[in-house]
């Protein structure tokens, strides 16, 4: 299994995807993607994952940068496959940890109570400088977590969408493959219908991300979608009935 791949590189700015973890889902598996954005001497790690993959992700990050240059670690939401390793990362580097303010007090369950280096994200999101460019934290609440954000990197034009766009397939971020929306549509459907809270939230998120010039969507699980395939995903997601819209089928 190929574990890492550079998905953007213009000489000064680089984005890398790691796929170190699998979660078994019925007869298939769900690859977990971790991302690293580097600009010159600064880096941000996105959704570093659970305790069990900490060592591999740490080593992978060190292959690309000096750990002292890891400036930020962003956790899109509170799930263990996203933030389970926050306690270890707090010990191993001096990076600032960016997380929804809704989840901060729960982080002590993952072994973090020193909030000196925690940047709490307000519900409305934020925009921070990253080198010469910006990182936008776009609200994605209730998709699926109540305190959830997508991250848009204005330089690479990649939207790190967290659980939005998760497809339960044998495709994963670090696998070199052009995937079409049509190919993964079925494998998107089950997850999104059950995990996303309702169509109102999907619509608002689509409206929000359309404010940005996105070339590629990079979800936390499954494959990346670019260009027209990303547009097809948005068109589908905008009208998706899910969660509360399908309550009768759940209860």
């Amino acid at each position: 299994m190929q574990n890492e791949k550079v998905i953007y590189d213009d000489g000064d700015h680089k984005c890398i995807v790691f796929s170190f973890d699998n979660e078994e889902v019925e007869e298939s598996f769900l690859a977990v993607n971790q991302y690293l954005i580097i600009q010159k001497n600064s880096a941000i790690l996105i959704d570093p994952g659970s305790q069990s993959t900490y060592d591999e992700v740490y080593d992978a990050v060190c292959r690309y940068i000096d750990i002292d240059n890891l400036k930020y670690i962003f956790y899109s939401h509170q799930d263990p496959d996203v933030a389970g390793s926050i306690g270890k990362w707090s010990v191993s580097c001096a990076a600032q940890q960016i997380v929804s303010k809704q989840w901060i007090r729960f982080m002590s369950h993952y072994g973090l109570m020193n909030f000196n280096r925690v940047i709490p994200l307000e519900d409305k999101g934020a925009k921070i400088h990253f080198g010469e460019d910006y990182l936008h934290f776009i609200p994605a609440h209730f998709l699926h977590s109540p305190g959830n954000f997508s991250l848009y990197d204005s330089r690479s034009k990649i939207l790190f969408s967290g659980d939005i766009g998760t497809s339960i397939t044998s495709y994963y971020g670090a696998k070199s493959q052009d995937v079409t929306f049509g190919e993964i549509r079925e494998s998107l459907e089950g997850f999104h219908k059950r995990y996303m809270a309702g169509n109102r939230f999907c619509k608002v998120w689509v409206q929000k991300v359309k404010e940005h010039d996105v070339h590629t969507m990079a979800p936390q699980h499954g494959s990346l979608l670019s260009g027209e395939e990303y547009d097809n995903f948005l068109a589908w997601f905008k009208d998706l009935e899910c969660g509360g819209d399908l309550m009768e089928s759940i209860y």
């Binding site: 060592d55 740490y58 060190c62 306690g87 270890k88 707090s90 010990v91 191993s92 002590s108 072994g111 973090l112 109570m113 020193n114």
Partner: peptide
Amino acid sequence: ESESKKLLIDYIAKRQMALIREFK
């Protein structure tokens, strides 16, 4: 050395967790 560093990270993270439980 990198291996010692990993062992120490692991120890401090576990100790941190134990102290959080103790404090709470």
